[in-house]
């Protein structure tokens, strides 16, 4: 007997499974999956300005920094200012889907490809952002590879205000609705990577970025 049959067989025996109750239970499971019932939710104000305000507050609480601009076209200049302010390099690896912005005009040299160890700055968009906890939701795809938000020491994310949703529930619903199914890699990111393993002392920049910077686009 295979281990699968052995394990499932014992679970079935313990639960008193038979063909009759299996039919009813399967229907019950389909009802649960179709209902997609939510648990209790913390209150999150729904107006767009309130969502953006909460995203900013929570992001700052998670040691991210935030800049606000009016249009996506201003993003390269805003990023150049941020990099210059911290004395960071002006070479960056970016999502291929952001390659059309005028990076050269802002003095940033970009490479649109997968991330490599030597990349110090990674620039991404986001699929959406969750106001409740100040969280970015990134979905992996050929033109938005996952490691760009992970390997570089600095991660900069462009976040259109129109893509801020109240909670994780809305973020998942948006993905299922727009993409048809959950993409292979969904990553929720809240601030720089951190560890508290040594004496419960929080240190930023464990394996991932030391810095996460949000460029919030108010008009888009």
């Amino acid at each position: 007997m295979s281990s699968r049959e052995d394990i499932l067989g014992r679970v079935r025996a313990k639960l008193g499974r038979n063909e009759t109750n299996a039919v009813a239970a399967r229907t019950g499971i389909d009802v649960i999956l179709a209902a997609k019932a939510q648990g209790p939710r913390p209150h999150v104000a729904m107006e767009m300005s309130a969502l953006a305000g909460r995203l900013i507050d929570k992001s700052l609480a998670y040691s991210s920094t935030v800049d606000q601009i009016a249009t996506q076209a201003e993003a390269p200049a805003a990023i150049a200012r941020y990099l210059a302010g911290l004395g960071l390099p002006t070479q960056a690896v970016i999502w291929p889907k952001l390659a059309d912005l005028d990076w050269a005009g802002a003095g940033i040299t970009v490479a649109a490809r997968e991330a490599q160890d030597a990349d110090l700055v990674g620039i991404t968009g986001c699929f959406c952002a969750v106001a409740e906890t100040g969280t970015l939701m990134l979905c992996g795809s050929p033109d938005s590879p996952a490691a760009i938000s992970l390997l570089p020491e600095t991660h900069i994310a462009i976040v259109p205000a129109s893509r801020i949703v109240p909670g994780m529930e809305e973020a998942f619903a948006l993905a299922l609705n727009e993409l048809g199914q959950l993409p292979r890699a969904v990553n929720f990111i809240s601030g720089p990577s951190r560890t508290g393993d040594i004496e419960q002392t929080i240190v930023l920049g464990a394996h991932g970025p030391y810095r996460v910077h949000l460029i919030l686009i108010d008009g888009e």
Partner: peptide
């Protein structure tokens, strides 16, 4: 309030995915 990274992973990479 939330852990820094919550990853929800489904299946293998598509042929044209970079990672």
């Amino acid at each position: 309030s939330i852990s820094n990274y919550v990853s929800v992973l489904t299946g293998t990479k598509a042929p044209d995915e970079l990672d």
